[in-house]
């Protein structure tokens, strides 16, 4: 379905670009700025959670290695911690979507 949309889109662009090229330049500039800042936004948002998740998983692995009998509890807690930490990166992703596509 999306491919059909895509084809229609491409075809319509081919017919309309000549007509309103002047009108689209401003929008294009906004889109370009949005796209580049979207990249920065997501890239920056991914740093902290990346470190955080790595730390959580590393600590969880060492805890499991030290006490294999409590691995289930550690794993559950690890997933919870990952979920909380990951939320920041995901908000960054949402910002990315907002900047890039809206």
């Amino acid at each position: 379905m999306s491919l059909l949309h895509h084809a229609i889109e491409l075809a319509s662009e081919a017919t309309t670009t000549a007509a309103d090229s002047a009108a689209t330049t401003a929008a294009d500039a906004k889109a370009a700025a949005g796209a580049s800042s979207a990249g920065y936004a997501y890239g920056l948002a991914a740093i902290g959670p990346g470190i955080g998740i790595g730390y959580i998983v590393g600590q969880a692995v060492s805890a499991m290695a030290r006490q294999p009998e409590s691995a289930g509890m550690v794993r559950t807690t690890m997933f919870l911690g990952i979920a909380f930490t990951e939320a920041l990166a995901l908000i960054g992703f949402v910002v990315f979507i907002l900047l890039k596509f809206v």
Partner: peptide, 8 residues
């Protein structure tokens, strides 16, 4: 050519 987000 990435399709517009609304098409996805």
């Amino acid at each position: 050519q990435f399709p517009p987000i609304e098409n996805v």
